[in-house]
Design a protein around this nucleic acid. Structure first.
Lengths: 264, 264
DNA sequence: AACAAGGTTCCATTATTTGGAACTACTAAA
DNA sequence: TTTAGTAGTTCCAAATAATGGAACCTTGTT
């Protein structure tokens, strides 16, 4: 897919292993890969050596390695909006009583970095890191609407436009029209475009300069509420998005607190 | 450090950026790196292109990228013991009322993959992914004690033997003696070796074949309890460790549930 | 305007990756 | 026990990508 020399290829292999959804054998990876046998083999070796992959000698399978978890922890704390947004999400969740999502854009997809589930206690890791489509989710469209044209172009080209429901927008034009509406309105709606019965409103999180950092959404179900009820939350959500954006901006160089570890 | 060609070097760069603890500028990374300017520059470019790093154009800083979070999610669900261990940790936590850790070994360090904090509600992502020393923690020693000699050798060579407290084991010999005791006893203890006032007991999680998968620990503080009280939990912890090991073994090839995403 | 520091690009040299093919290890059938 | 087949691993000359010194921008400072 991408072509950053060896690094790009290695990342492709990582993705392939990860997307398998379960530990995969060499042969399984081989067909599904464009690389020749020996090449793929050496990549798997190197990545395993590095801990980016894990090799189970009993079952002879490869799976994503724990080094990724360690690195992701750093990404999470340093780079995502999650640490900043956490208190805001807590507040928004308890005020609305609805499900709240915090997402960022990653390779044209929506990456959920945090979530508050109205019903159950927080179940973080199982949600953080999950991905979803951008063209048919509130958060996805909210972010796309405020991308500069070049990045938007690229992002749109990465959409599958798969029809999840009969309300899903399935053409670039339909999407672009909606994005224009979102821009003027300041928030996005998902009207059962991804899942029947699920509606949501979402606001982008922007820097002062207008760069897209992420988005937050409040989700409801058509069974319990209609759009009017949900849209009543828009001003609140927008304000929270702005606050998060401002704080993210301000949070320039916090104390260099190198990885301490208290636990035993 | 390691030398798997380009991949190894790229991973080193990733680690370097991650260990910075905050978004880092090019120059900062440059001195702290063995790579020449142009080389480091190209690595950062490629990794950024791939989403393994994130470049903030406003501040001109690099930080770990969100692609890592996505990959880590796969690692977490497919490879770690956490999904299997979750219910057991819940049970152990509520029974003991103490802090419970689940850890795995990663590059000679203890990687905490899950945690139950007695006091507060679960706060997952902020704990998962953190690392700690192996030679002076219960979980670390429990795992090391059951490694085969070759891996143990390598792991020991990766220990810093920094003296955290006056009870810290600071020599290979002292550690090896303790590991022998752990092997015969079946569980490890941390007697304020990492932090004053913090004690813990830990059991390894092994496959039937005796391969080390991870470890679990129950932690207490000298203020509230002594070792006798803590060691009363050993049989329970050991049984849980065995159960997790057995389930992990059995969990060969679960339904290939490719990344679905329900959320909106 | 001159300078400095941080960042980026160039390109001939050097070192690494590449991948077809040969080889080994295991498993199933004859 | 032999044979055939499949999965995994190693080899090495050719092809390709990484390297890094030096020149070159760009931005902010005296």
């Amino acid at each position: 897919m991408a072509g950053d020399g060896t690094i790009g290829k290695a990342c492709d292999v990582l993705d392939q292993v990860a997307s398998f959804g379960r530990p995969a054998r060499f042969a399984e990876l081989l067909d599904g890969s464009d690389f020749p046998k020996a090449t793929l083999y050496r990549f798997l070796q190197s990545l395993t050596n590095q801990g980016m992959l894990h090799y189970d000698p009993d079952r002879q399978t490869y799976s994503p390695g724990m080094r990724l978890v360690r690195l992701a922890h750093a990404a999470w704390t340093q780079n995502s909006l999650a640490p900043i947004a956490r208190p805001f999400l807590d507040a928004l969740s308890s005020e609305t009583g609805e499900t709240v999502h915090l997402a960022q854009l990653d390779s044209g997809q929506v990456l959920y970095v945090d979530k508050r589930n109205a019903q159950r206690p927080v179940e973080m890791y199982s949600e953080a890191g999950k991905v979803g489509p951008a063209y048919c989710t509130g958060v996805g469209k909210a972010m796309m609407a405020f991308l500069e044209e070049e990045r938007l172009q690229k992002t749109i080209s990465q959409q599958s436009f798969h029809r999840f429901t009969d309300k899903t927008l399935t053409s670039e034009q339909a999407l672009r029209d909606d994005l224009a509406a979102i821009r003027s309105r300041g928030y996005a709606v998902d009207d059962e475009e991804h899942e029947p019965g699920i509606i949501c409103i979402a606001c982008p999180i922007l820097t002062e300069g207008g760069r897209v950092l992420g988005a937050i959404s409040v989700t409801g179900s058509t069974g319990r509420m209609d759009f009017n009820q949900l849209e009543a939350w828009v001003p609140r959500v927008r304000r929270v998005a702005e606050q998060i954006g401002t704080e993210a901006q301000a949070w320039r160089f916090p104390e260099s607190q190198k990885n301490r570890m208290q636990a035993t």
